[in-house]
């Protein structure tokens, strides 16, 4: 059988894409929460935690669900509130629902792990969010997604389906990395010079840790690094697995494989968006980006990541609705 003979339903391609995205979100939420806790400095807790809500653009949702901006409520909103579609339990619920539709394509080990992980997450209690328990919870959440990723790497058959799974993961990861960088935009710094310098260093280190890049960055960077170096590392490092550029380059190469190996000419539109994104990430000096405003730049990158997802959707998925880029196939099927 040649690869050309393999059949992949449009619905399943979409399901794989979204399952990967939902799980990637869980890991990144755990990373962000972990980092936010490290940011916490006496007197600034609320600002630090509400920063999470802002970088995820969840302000409206947060208020509508009756939460008030304090540390406790933000943690509950993301870790306990099943009714909040951006929470860890909700993302995992969506991932598992997609996994159910994808079971014919998944390995038994993949399904089993998601199933067990889902059960763990649906039993998170308020006590798990308190004190040192929170760090342990975040570690368990990261472990859960990483186990999933590892099992997938070792067991998922690498036909077109795998490419869509990877595309979902890459798009989401690039997006999350830009959001992590954006934490800097929302975090407050002390006024006084030396204290500000130390606090800023701490913040950059925390972001690097959240993006799993702390040690690699240390090896690569000069002894006295600047903000520019960190932004460069997270956006452009060619080797960091979570850098936006690496994710976009890999997505581009996957799309090219789909076109070449599987003869899917519809990949072309998405390839064009990916190419544009790659140029966007590389063209200007970081100093220029910082001078013009990092937040606005990250916004543009995020918008183009959404355009990339939309182009993949238009090319291959069944019920793609471009006007609502965050709605996955779960919502579509709930009406069936």
């Amino acid at each position: 059988m040649t690869p050309m003979d393999a059949v992949l339903l449009a619905r399943d391609a979409e399901g794989l894409f979204w399952m990967a995205r939902y799980l990637e979100r869980v890991e990144n939420l755990a990373r962000l929460i972990d980092v936010t806790q490290s940011f916490e400095s006496p007197g600034y807790e609320t600002d630090a935690w509400f920063g999470l809500i802002r970088i995820n653009a969840d302000e409206k949702n947060f208020a509508e669900r009756g939460f008030v901006p304090d540390a406790d409520h933000v943690k509950r909103f993301y870790l306990l509130d099943k009714g909040n579609p951006t929470s860890v339990p909700a993302n995992l619920e969506d991932a598992r629902t997609n996994a159910r539709t994808l079971r014919p394509l998944m390995s038994t080990e993949m399904w089993r792990q998601i199933n067990v992980f889902h059960r763990y997450v649906s039993h998170i209690t308020p006590e798990d969010l308190e004190g040192d328990a929170l760090a342990r919870l975040c570690a368990r959440l990261k472990d859960g997604v990483q186990a999933h990723t590892g099992i997938t790497e070792g067991t998922l058959y690498r036909d077109q389906g795998w490419y869509f799974y990877e595309l979902g993961r890459l798009v989401e990861r690039a997006d999350q990395t830009t959001r992590m960088l954006d934490i800097k935009y929302t975090a407050l710094l002390p006024w006084d010079g030396e204290a500000a310098r130390v606090a800023e260093l701490t913040q950059w280190n925390a972001i690097l840790r959240a993006a799993a890049g702390y040690h690699a960055f240390r090896r690569r960077a000069r002894a006295t690094f600047t903000a520019e170096d960190v932004v460069h590392f997270l956006l452009r490092d060619p080797s960091s697995p979570r850098s936006a550029l690496l994710c976009v380059r890999r997505a581009e190469s996957h799309l090219d494989d789909l076109r070449r190996i599987y003869g899917l000419s519809r990949a072309v539109e998405a390839m064009e968006v990916a190419e544009y994104l790659r140029e966007l990430l590389q063209e200007k000096p970081i100093s220029h980006i910082l001078a013009m405003g990092l937040h606005d730049y990250l916004d543009i990158v995020q918008i183009h990541l959404q355009k990339l997802a939309a182009a993949i959707g238009r090319g291959f998925f069944r019920d793609w609705q471009p006007e609502d880029p965050v709605a996955g196939p779960v919502a579509a099927q709930a009406q069936a």
């Binding site: 059949v7 992949l8 449009a10 619905r11 869509f164 599987y262 899917l264 069944r318 019920d319």
Partner: peptide
Amino acid sequence: VPLVVGSDLLVENERVYMRTINGLR
């Protein structure tokens, strides 16, 4: 074999097709 739901299939000219990433099959 593929597991399909109703919306994965469609009928044209009295023939049944499924919607794949590469069009109808």
